[in-house]
Design a protein around this nucleic acid. Structure first.
Lengths: 138, 138
DNA sequence: ACTTGAACCTGTAGTCACTATAGCTTTTTT
DNA sequence: AAAAAAGCTATAGTGACTACAGGTTCAAGT
């Protein structure tokens, strides 16, 4: 990869769509890059690393606001600990919620398998809150 | 609960906000209810059951399009487990990714406690896909 | 019977995190 | 040099709501 590259090359390198890169720039998550004579964006390695960080974090379910904070954390290694702990707890909460959800889905699928052919319990479970093991309103 | 009830009562019974109920009606997920003399919505038991089904499904992370499909299946008394399975797998993938991230955060917090801050591997892990334990594109 | 105020109505605009389109200009390839 | 690919800006659309403005109806208290 040459020193400077286009938005398309950056897109290809990160798996992030061109439109999304421009969007990240617009909302201030990516810095404004240099421009060519003709006004096209010219990126380099640092941009690619930052964008990879953003994409990776997004895939793990962080919001753009979370990522803004994580990026700050990465730039100034000072208050890293507190922020890291808070994120750790947030991640754990999400894991717990998703695990409960997966268990419920497994149970639903299991019920469906036990049912006589042609009879699906998924719909029943979704209809009737009393048949649901997880705690949620409704 | 009387035979006919207002949107507020339905909202209270299902934990679904009034605006959301009207929104579901607008997009055709809830049928248009009867109206009072003065034009206010009047629901009955069947509406409540349908809305409970929708809310329950939403809480389990199904999209409105999934739910549309589930409702069709429930009306035709067909199998719905394929949708549930697909969704279950997506949830499991997310759990795996988040668990890997939480482990990284734990490890980093541990290192911070041992007394070398500054070296924040979380950022590394999020920046560099090669250092990430989970499988995902990017 | 009348008045108050909570609940209701419609319609529109805003949220988040993109995604897609239109109608151009620049860059690259042939 | 011409054609094609990639880029540009600006705007509108997506999903699943949520909030607001400005008006109407309903139920309860007097």
């Amino acid at each position: 990869m040459p020193t400077l590259f286009s938005i398309g090359t950056l897109s290809h390198a990160t798996g992030c769509k061109v439109e999304t890169i421009r969007y990240y720039e617009k909302i201030g998550l990516m810095p404004e890059p240099a421009r060519s004579e003709g006004g096209q964006r010219r990126y380099h390695r640092r941009h690619r690393e930052r964008l990879q960080f953003i994409r990776h974090s997004r895939e793990l379910g962080f919001t753009l606001d979370d990522i803004r904070e994580l990026l700050t954390l990465s730039e100034q290694h000072q208050h890293a600990d507190a922020i890291a702990r808070r994120h750790r707890d947030a991640v754990q909460n999400r894991i717990s919620a998703l695990t409960a959800l997966r268990n419920e889905l497994d149970r639903m699928i299991g019920e469906c398998e036990k049912g006589h052919p042609g009879e699906c319990r998924v719909i029943d479970v979704l209809s009737d809150h009393g048949k649901c093991l997880t705690e949620h309103s409704g």
